[in-house]
Amino acid sequence: MDDHLWISKIIGKKHMEKRTLDKNKGTIYLALILSLIIFFYLYNPTKIFYPPCPFCYLTGFYCPGCGTSRAIYQIVHGNFLYALNLNPLMILSLPFLFYLVMCNLNIKIGEKLIFKRRVFTKKFYVMLIAVIVLYWILRNIPIYPFSILAP
């Protein structure tokens, strides 16, 4: 590809070298997922000595990640509904994260990429941050419709 040399001049050689690490990416994701599954299959975070969320510990408010470890414990043990109760946004983000990881891995069938790296619009990012910040605020309101979001 002629394109190739031209780009390495623009973006810099350093970055082109980074791309050779692509094969390791799959291993990193797989290791992360497997270690999470094995750890939470063996240990219940509410029963063993497990550090709480620093944000919750210091301020007393829930953060968007509160309840994630308990939710993973419940998923690994097959209780999807209970996991949804603990951290709904985390569970709902899993399919999207899976899609992003697939885009990252550059898996090819023959010569064609299954998922291509997508350049998201500004609107998408504004929405994403708005959803997370709203979720953060709403799950701290101890009134009925919002209290479902709390862990």
Binding site: M1, D3, P54, G65, M90, R117
Partner: peptide, 23 residues
Amino acid sequence: YYEERVESHLVWAILVTLFCCLP
């Protein structure tokens, strides 16, 4: 071709937000 080359690290950004704990 080059757009695929620049990583946005969105996966890890979401992971540290929803799986870790800090802002």
